[in-house]
Design a protein around this nucleic acid. Structure first.
Length: 312
DNA sequence: TAAGATAAGAGGGACAT
DNA sequence: ATGTCAGTCTTATCTTA
């Protein structure tokens, strides 16, 4: 049943939207479906396993990945009320007008969504993103569309931005560059779109998850788990000192891995790391210098020598 | 050859006007 | 709305070990 003043367990937003047509409550912020008041199971019985196999669903599933969510509702041109009596003329006019407005807005919206979701699916398959991320991206885009953020901007850019934000929500280590490289827009433009959505939609996006980036880089560089853990540890210290604000998370992950691989004796060159991280060695050097400073101060303060980087 | 230093330029955020 | 300023990141080039 519908409670009041609920909060989304995923993102804490109180912006819960109930859709009585579909019988669901959805978090307007992150797209999490909170409950379902209708029975989504089949309305028939399976008498043997082959029937279960071939008839395990009636109708298409409800999904934000389809332009009309897999369902369709529409205000028709109503002339009679539910008991069959003809409505007064003024009501008929009203419904005719509603129907027309409904049709118009619906048409442009659906057309936009068809286009957008096609692009979304293309990026999804190219980057091999999981379905739940794609669905969340679609929800974010729908929200942006409702708020009229799309008009006058490129659909491709806004879709890519929605997907990027969904990845951030789901803590997937995708960078802005990754998305931009498979989309036909530049990182610059993608950044602009992301900013627009972030500003206008009030999404609760946690700061980038360093550990996911570190592991992703670490795997590409074939370094041990030990080095990766050490890198994460370094970043946590840096963050506690406020040294990570405003820095590209990827460059921080790269620099901390550079340090940790030296400490564990599996050194990689700055160039090697820079290539995998798709940044420049100069940036690694800059972050590297800052991190070393912090780590030395920290080891002096705690007397913990394992952080020392003087051996370099 | 790897890595450090330096400089110049692009782009965006914060802030004042 | 527009301009300025500090800070980030990139690219290029030269130097050092």
């Amino acid at each position: 049943m519908l409670g009041h003043n609920r909060k989304c367990p995923e993102c804490g937003s109180a912006d819960i939207v109930s859709d009585f047509n579909k019988g669901t409550s959805v978090c307007a912020s992150c797209g999490l479906v909170l409950d379902t008041q209708i029975d989504l199971g089949p309305e028939w019985r399976a008498y043997n396993s082959s029937e279960l196999q071939e008839r395990s669903r009636t109708g298409s599933p409800i999904t934000p990945l389809k332009a009309e969510m897999g369902l369709r509702t529409q205000i028709g041109n109503i002339r009679k009320d539910i008991t069959g009596r003809t409505l007064p003329f003024t009501s008929q006019t009203k419904y005719r007008r509603l129907s027309r407005i409904d049709n118009r807005t619906r048409k442009s919206e659906i057309r936009n969504l068809r286009f957008a979701l096609k692009e979304l699916k293309r990026i999804k398959s190219q980057l091999e993103l999981p379905a739940d991320v794609a669905e969340m991206g679609a929800m974010i885009y729908r929200k942006a569309l409702k708020k009229n953020l799309i008009r006058g901007r490129s659909i491709d850019g806004m879709i890519a931005a929605s997907l990027y934000l969904a990845c951030r929500k789901k803590k997937l280590p995708q960078t802005l560059k990754d998305i931009a490289s498979v989309s036909n827009i530049s990182s610059k433009e993608l950044g602009r779109c992301i900013r627009i959505i972030l500003q206008k939609l009030d999404l609760k996006i946690s700061p980038s998850d360093y550990s996911a980036l570190v592991h992703r880089l670490g795997i590409s560089l074939r370094v041990t788990m030990k080095a990766r853990r050490q890198a994460v540890k370094i970043l946590n210290i840096a963050r506690s000192k406020g040294a990570t604000v405003g820095k590209n998370p990827m460059s921080l992950a790269a620099a901390s891995l550079y340090i940790s691989t030296i400490q564990t004796g599996e050194r990689r060159t700055q160039q090697e790391i820079a290539t995998v991280a798709k940044i420049t060695p100069v940036t690694i050097r800059n972050r590297f210098k800052e991190l070393v400073k912090i780590l030395d101060a920290e080891s002096k303060r705690t007397g913990n020598d394992s952080l020392r980087t003087l051996l370099i």
